[in-house]
Design a protein around this nucleic acid. Structure first.
Length: 296
DNA sequence: GCGGCGC
């Protein structure tokens, strides 16, 4: 559905109020607020929520300049992935990236001047002018980009803590409820999700999965391009199965995989991962595209 | 206390 067609709670962003009136963001609730100083820049991270949804506002402030981008909450984990990519990649293999979220496109570009290297993140949306923040790499790679990444990881993790348990219902018909693919994990016992570069393609939401309920109702969702794939364990009188549903727009279709076939399924997928390694290596997700660096 | 961004 177009549940988040607001492009990330765009109702805010200071568009109506210009000039230093009271920026009373109306119904926008601030869930998390963090600041990061990189060289002489100050970055503000505000995870906010209004009736249209949740979004992360990232502002860059210097003495004379303020610039803000608004990231829909579903994009936080993509941002995290992308910053991991820029932190972990060698200099010669840094490419520009585009990230498409709802109606917005975020451009990630590397630049360099005598002050050093920087990552330019700009947001283009239909209604608003393009806005840009620039994150210095720092003299050691950890200073700028990694610190930025760490904040993103903290916010990504914290945002999971704000998911009400009854917002995610197991099994049938949950597709429309699981709007917030980037919202992270449901807090449970012992769920440690360190922000290392170790998380994979899957942007998962774990249903409670208590022991007493058995495995039925365990669900995950991943996202690739404009599609979402839901994985739901279920059972009927014929036994247990994994239902994999593909949802794109208003179309959906499913396959039902008896658990007896799951291992082979896994092996076959692994085989294709193996033989396409060159192509998918470095992909942080299928709706992140690598584009040629600008020739300037 | 820099400086990139944009046309």
């Amino acid at each position: 559905m177009e549940a988040n067609s607001g492009g990330g709670g765009g109702a805010e962003g200071g568009r109506a109020v210009t000039g230093g009136g009271g920026g009373g963001g109306g119904s926008d609730v601030e869930l998390v607020s963090k600041t990061l100083q990189v060289e002489h820049k100050l970055f503000y991270f505000d995870l906010k929520e209004n009736p249209r949804g949740r979004y992360l506002k990232i502002s860059e402030k210097t003495s004379a300049t303020r610039s803000t981008i608004i990231v829909p909450s579903s994009g936080i984990s993509w941002f995290l992935d992308l910053f991991n990519y820029y932190v972990n990649s060698e200099e010669h293999e840094l490419f520009s990236k585009e990230l498409q979220l709802d109606s917005k496109v975020f451009y990630f570009d590397i630049g360099e001047n005598r002050r050093g290297r920087f990552l330019k993140v700009s947001e283009a949306s239909v209604s608003r002018n393009r806005s840009t923040i620039i994150v210095p790499a720092g003299s050691s790679p950890d200073e700028g980009w990694a610190a930025f990444r760490n904040i993103l990881a903290e916010i990504h993790e914290a945002s999971g803590l704000f998911v009400m348990p009854n917002q995610v219902k197991p099994s049938d018909g949950q597709e429309h409820l699981v709007d917030d693919v980037g919202a992270g994990f449901i807090p449970g016992h012992g769920s440690q999700q360190p922000s290392s570069s170790e998380h994979n393609v899957d942007r998962t939401i774990d249903s409670p999965g208590q022991e007493e309920t058995g495995m039925t109702g365990v669900s995950k969702v991943i996202r690739a391009d404009q599609k979402r794939f839901f994985f739901d364990l279920g059972n009927n009188n014929r036994g247990h199965f994994l239902r994999i549903s593909e949802v794109a727009g208003s179309d959906r279709s499913s396959i039902i995989l008896p658990l007896s076939g799951l291992k082979q399924f896994h092996e076959v997928i692994g085989h294709f991962v193996e033989i396409t390694k060159d192509k998918i290596e470095g992909m942080t997700g299928a709706n992140v595209r690598t584009v040629d660096p600008p020739q300037r």
